[in-house]
């Protein structure tokens, strides 16, 4: 929090001095990239890519023809590529269950990559979803109306959550909402506001995910690497700590998930 305030102060003071520059950066050997997940009561979805030079600005090359399997401790299923060349692997033969340990195995170009994750539970329920103005607004304008919710946090320590919001079917994944329970453990939490401005008649969907501590750390790193770099007091960019073996990049996430649709009155 302190860093954000600091960055805010500095951005007020020196907002104008930014220039896009050409930077001569050596290229790095390309690596397999995993962007995959399985949620409770849903099928697994695994996207495989190959990393590319940072300033390439082309579509990501896809890792096709890989052999992908998923094990939930009792069953083993093969995830097949949905269409040749798509790099998207899935299967209808398995649905996620909270508490099970999932092992993802990928064989690609003579290398084997694995990832193990135990699916964490999410919040028990949304106790309420309601709409109210933000506590502050731009000078001279009425504050925007946003979506709020309340929930009961579990008594035991160590839970992490992520919330996603969509308005009329449109979701911005880059609006990250996530928390651990360090500051809120066991409390009844109210007035958590998410998403953008809403209007009467909009259909709002809220999704609450339980996430592992590893994924909580990964999301924190996204904040640190992609958002906090703009200040003068940024931590050094650090390599992401994913959960795929054998030097592959990315993350395989498992989550308990609940969702609720509401129409804005």
């Amino acid at each position: 929090m302190k860093n954000y305030i600091y960055i805010l102060i500095l951005s007020i003071v020196f907002s104008s001095c930014q220039d896009v520059i050409e930077l001569d950066v050596a290229s790095k050997a390309s690596k397999l990239v995993v962007d995959g997940w399985i949620d409770s009561d849903s099928v697994p979805k695994i996207y495989l890519y190959i990393s590319q030079p940072y300033f390439e600005n082309k579509e990501y090359p896809k890792a096709t023809g890989a052999i992908v399997t998923l094990n939930d401790g009792t069953n083993n299923v093969n995830l097949t590529e949905s269409a040749a060349g798509s790099g998207f692997y899935s299967s209808n033969a398995m649905k996620g269950t909270v508490g099970k340990t999932y092992t993802l195995t990928i064989q690609y170009e003579n290398k084997t990559y694995t990832s193990v994750s135990t699916m964490p539970k999410t919040i028990a329920q949304f106790d309420s979803i309601y709409f109210r103005p933000l506590p502050f607004g731009k000078p001279g304008q009425a504050p925007k109306i946003v979506t709020n919710f309340a929930y009961q946090e579990y008594p035991e320590k160590g839970n992490c959550y992520m919330a996603r919001f969509s308005r009329n079917g449109e979701m911005d994944l880059k609006k990250l909402n996530f928390t651990d329970d360090q500051f809120i453990n066991g409390n009844h939490i109210t007035d958590v506001f998410v998403g953008e401005e809403v209007f009467s008649g909009d259909t709002i969907r809220l999704e609450a995910y339980g996430i592992t501590k590893e994924y909580f750390g990964f999301l924190n790193q996204i904040i640190s690497n992609e958002y906090q770099q703009q200040g003068l007091f940024s931590p050094p960019i650090a390599p992401y700590k994913g959960n795929i073996s054998n030097d592959a990049l990315g993350f395989f996430r498992t989550s308990g998930m609940i969702a609720k649709d509401t129409i804005v009155p």
Binding site: S30, Y49, D172, I222
Partner: peptide, 11 residues
């Protein structure tokens, strides 16, 4: 500096 890049959930 960043040498290479890759996608993750829209990022």
């Amino acid at each position: 500096v960043n040498q290479s890049r890759y996608p993750h959930q829209g990022f």
